[in-house]
Design a binder for these strands. Sequence first.
DNA 1: CGCCAATTGTTGTCGTCAACAACAATCTTT
DNA 2: AAAGATTGTTGTTGACGACAACAATTGGCG
Lengths: 168, 168
Amino acid sequence: MTATADRADTRHAPRKRAGNGAAPGNGADDIGLDALVGHAGYAVRRFQIWIFQDFIKTLGEVDIRPTQYSVLTVIGANPGLSQMAVAKRLGIERARLVHLLDSLEQRKLVKRIRSKQDRRSHALHLTAQGETALTKFKRLAAEHERHVEAKIGKENRAQLLRILSGFT
Amino acid sequence: MTATADRADTRHAPRKRAGNGAAPGNGADDIGLDALVGHAGYAVRRFQIWIFQDFIKTLGEVDIRPTQYSVLTVIGANPGLSQMAVAKRLGIERARLVHLLDSLEQRKLVKRIRSKQDRRSHALHLTAQGETALTKFKRLAAEHERHVEAKIGKENRAQLLRILSGFT
DNA sequence: CGCCAATTGTTGTCGTCAACAACAATCTTT
DNA sequence: AAAGATTGTTGTTGACGACAACAATTGGCG
C-alpha cells in the first residue's frame, strides 16, 4: 500500500490557501472560517458556551449550575408547582428533573410534598434554607450578568434580551 | 415540537399562593419566570436549543449535525489542515474530533492524508464526493438561516450576528 | 550526535444533557 | 368497574465536553 508516487495530483479544485501538507504549527489564528461566519447558530453556540462557563465559575463557590438555578428560581417564584409543570415551563425532560430535584432535595434546598388533590404529583417548595440560599444565588447571578455586560457591552446585552425575549 | 410562535405572556407578579397543592393541570402557560427573565444565559440557551433543532431538522435529509457541518466547512475552506488546527479553531477537543472524522471518513466525505512534513499529523481534505455534498449542505444551511430570520426577524438576526461577532 | 520534552493522533473513562421507552401508582373518562 | 391518560420514576441510548494515558514522531538542547 505504499507506492502511489504519482498521486494524480488533484489540483483541479481548491485554489484557496494552505496547501496540501498539513500545517500543524499553524496556531489556528489565521484560519479562515469563511462560510461559518454568518451562521447564527455557530455564533450563538460559542456565546452560550462562554456564558455558561462564566455562570458556573461565578456561582462556583455555591456549586450551582445554570439548570439548577433556573429550577430554584421557578420554584421560588411559584411555590407548589408540580414537577411536570416545572419541567414543561423550563423545557426540561421530566425524567431529567427527577435527578435535579434529587440533588437539590439532598442539599436541603427543595422539598417534595405529596399533593392531597392529586396524589400522583409532588408540590415543590423551597425550604427555609433554600430561600435564604436563593437570595445569595441571585446576588451571584447578578454579578455574572455584569460579566456579560462587560463582555459584549451594556447596550448590546439589552438588545440581545429584547431580540430573544420570545424564547423565555 | 410545536412552534408556539409568539407567546408574550407578560403577566405580572404570580400570586404566591402558598398553597401546598401542586397544580398539575396547569399547562405551564401562566407560570411566571420572574427572576429568570432578564438573564441573558437563559434566553441564549433556549434560543440555541431552538436553532440546533431547526438545523438538525432542516439538514435531516442529509443527516448532518451542526458540529459535523462546521468541521466540513472549515476543511473545505482550508484544505490540508491538521486535526489539531481544526480542533483548536472550532473549540473541539481533539479526542472528540477523532470520532467526528471517523464518521465523516466512513461516509467518504473527508480523507486523512499523512503529512510528509510532519508524519505525526494528518492533512485533512474533502473528497470529491465531499465537495459536492458540502455545496448541498450549504444550500440547506442557508435555508435554515432563513428559518432563523423568519423566527426573530431579518434585522434582529443581523444585529445578533453583529453583537456576537467576537465569538466566532 | 543523542537524549529528553513536547506535539499529534488515538483510545479510554467519566460526567452532563437531551430523547425515549417502560413501569407502578394514581387520576379521569366512559 | 374497565379503559385510558397522567405523574413520577428508572433505565438506556447517543451527542458532547473534559481528562488521562499511550505510541509515534518531532524538536530542542546539552
